[in-house]
């Protein structure tokens, strides 16, 4: 039986291709709903024209589908509220700083 917690956990393994930080700590995942074996993820991107959008959605679907008990994954892209840097978690900031991004 899949739980929202296990989905959050697995999404911490999905990284943005440009920032070596996972999408949860970047604050891009807005919500996760689990109904039986169906998972719905609401997530955003830093820009509407994000070149990695397709790639990241594939990664998210792939990571969640690999969890036991998942039969269906839906990713809804949302733009409200718009993503800002304030959404990055404290841990995300430390990771970014550690890899020398703009520091």
């Amino acid at each position: 039986m899949v739980t929202a917690e296990s989905v959050w956990e697995v999404l911490e393994q999905v990284c943005d291709p440009e920032y070596p930080v996972n999408i949860v700590d970047l604050g891009m995942v807005y919500g996760i709903e689990v109904e039986g074996s169906a998972v719905r993820v609401r997530m955003t991107f830093t820009s509407i024209g994000c070149p990695a959008m397709e790639m990241l959605i594939q990664d998210v679907k792939g990571a969640i589908s690999a969890l036991p008990g998942v039969s269906e994954v839906r990713v809804d892209v949302v733009w409200t509220p718009p993503w800002t840097k304030e959404r990055i978690t404290e841990r995300g900031r430390k990771l970014l700083a550690a890899c020398g991004v703009a520091s």
Binding site: S47, I48, G49, C50, P51, M53
Partner: peptide, 8 residues
């Protein structure tokens, strides 16, 4: 890039 993103 912005415009094409908006089209998508």
């Amino acid at each position: 890039q912005t415009e094409l993103g908006h089209v998508r």
